[in-house]
Design a binder for these strands. Structure first.
Lengths: 343, 343
DNA sequence: TTGTACGCGTTATCAG
DNA sequence: CTGATAACGCGTACAA
């Protein structure tokens, strides 16, 4: 590696001790202003930069935290990571970022990698396969705090940052009801995810509140990917079982459904209205523009990072951690895809 | 931070020296197989993990490299980063990731941050404002190799990983010509970027080859964002200066143009055909699906990372580096947005 | 085959 | 106010 100047070099150049140099550089009170000045000038001259590795070894801290997200394909998680970085850079922490690719095996491998790197804390949005409670608990009990965000572990005792999925699903469904769509159904996400259950419950309760009947056909287990939305919609079309409106688990599923509609020359929202979730940039660009729930991604990242930093501090001070679930405010953006033109 | 077992602890437990433990763990030949076995068992028992910080200090290597990208909003750069990680994880390197937000000032700040963290090498896709040649050269001359990818510095002497923007722009334009569109124009990117010049040149040369006239209206400086494509298209509509086909600098610009067309009830491709660049997932989902040039993002990341690793090795061995520009194969995906129905 | 001792760059403690 | 020294965890030359 490139040769960097050290405090030793400065000490040698000025014929003083490394201790004094260290203190001068740290701007401490117990050092003669004139030598302090000399040291700083010499440091400048030699283009001295403190070696972060040495500092970390000395402080017995790696100043590193790990982030696991399911994927990178949409801009959703990257935006959250932006928020995380915004806080962590400030705090002098490095970030290890990895994606589980929706697989629990990958997630496990990544978590082990993080342990090997001695991360001081971990931020997780879990994979769609399984809620790996045992592993999370093991890590937390070993003294490495975990904060979950967006896709949180249902039962692990830890802090979590989410939006109120139930409420937003409720609102989205009510929005369709207020628009007087008759047959409203829900394309649900992967069963293992807590957000799937919450959005499903929100849908059900909104339907019940307005005395809509829920049949076995009202909720269709679909998944998370565009293709899954596409095939689910296609199946309904083939069965001539077309609803008036669909509240979809997320935007990609809604896009997939939309594609299937177009392929069969069925118009949206005239024949089938659509609502998505977790607004992506795309929502505004498809035709018709998609109604969706916008999540505060950047803020979610910031919040999770801040909570984790707190917990790391508390852990270092051997204090107890209070687990909290923070619910951020989301927003239903109504667009053309869910407006009933007949009313 | 959490208390980890060290080789000292193992040594103490077995009443041997740390040196022996160190050697045993490194699986070296000059240590008694039986003690080696003992050490490994004890290490297992104490859940020993080598402290990466200590190793790095000892090896005088930070095993860290930095990546700067302009943005995170589309999935383009995240996918490249995935490829980078794929290589670097394997090689035991950590990644510092940052986004310049298209601003040269930010980029400079990030590069300084990387220097402070003593990265061993840097991967850069430059911002749209300015090609900061002086800074890049300063860093490279100081002994930190830089490899550029996708958006490369025009004149900095360094290795670069790109696609053949000229050729693909040429192909895209020819495709429009072969489809017998009459009035074909180009929405160009930010003037400071090399890829802007290359794509522009590809457009021009394809037009010339087929004896199409290039007027002052044939190329419109547009930019990089969806909004810019939107307003450029809107202006043409207001001026009643609508072309038959537009080769756009990238997908977002094409989406913006498409949006403007729809707002004026102008159909695509019937009245105006569109071609994008740097295919995004969205390209397949908009209506009509957008013709675009797909770039091998993952491979681009892998390639750039591999080249950087090589250069880091060469630097460490005090050997000379040969700068190479690697051109990866891209692909024009023809979709409905650029098919002339009249032929 | 194993142990001693030192160095990596930094900070903290304790003398002076 | 300043200097000498130990320590952080690991690797390695050298000695035994």
């Amino acid at each position: 590696m490139k040769k960097y100047a050290t405090i030793k070099d400065i000490a040698k150049a000025l014929n003083i001790s490394v201790a004094t140099v260290s203190r001068a550089l740290a701007d401490r009170w117990d050092v003669n202003p004139s030598t302090k000045k000399l040291v700083k000038e010499e440091a400048e001259r030699q283009n001295y930069k403190p070696n972060p590795i040495a500092t970390r070894l000395q402080n017995k801290r790696t100043k590193t935290i790990g982030v696991v997200v399911p994927e990178f394909k949409s801009s959703f998680f990257p935006n959250i990571i932006l928020g995380i970085q915004n806080i962590l850079d400030e705090a002098g922490f490095q970030l290890l970022i990895a994606q589980s690719n929706e697989s629990m095996a990958n997630e496990e491998k990544i978590l082990k990698l993080f342990e090997g790197n001695m991360v001081e804390g971990i931020l997780v949005s879990i994979n769609q396969e399984q809620d790996n409670i045992n592993l999370y608990n093991k890590i937390i009990n070993s003294g490495i705090p975990i904060v979950f965000f967006n896709r949180v572990s249902a039962t692990t005792l830890a802090s979590k940052v989410v939006i109120d999925n139930y409420k937003m699903a409720f609102f989205a469904t009510e929005h369709l009801i207020y628009n007087k769509f008759e047959k409203i159904i829900h394309f649900a996400g992967p069963a293992s995810l807590k957000i799937t259950q919450e959005r499903k419950k929100g849908f059900e309760d909104a339907m019940k509140k307005h005395h809509r009947v829920l049949t076995s056909n009202s909720i269709i287990d679909t998944g998370i990917m565009s293709e899954q939305g596409h095939s689910a919609m296609k199946k309904l079309i083939e069965e001539s079982n077309i609803p008036d409106a669909i509240f979809c688990f997320n935007d990609p599923v809604a896009f997939g459904a939309l594609k299937a509609l177009k392929e069969s020359n069925i118009t949206c929202p005239d024949t089938v209205a659509l609502v998505g979730f977790s607004e992506t940039e795309m929502a505004q660009l498809v035709e018709p523009p998609l109604t969706s729930v916008e999540q505060p991604t950047f803020k979610m990242g910031e919040t999770a990072a801040n909570i984790l930093l707190e917990q790391i501090e508390l852990t270092n001070e051997q204090q107890n951690i209070n687990f909290e679930t923070t619910s951020l405010t989301a927003h239903l953006h109504v667009r053309k895809s869910s407006i009933n033109k007949k009313i």
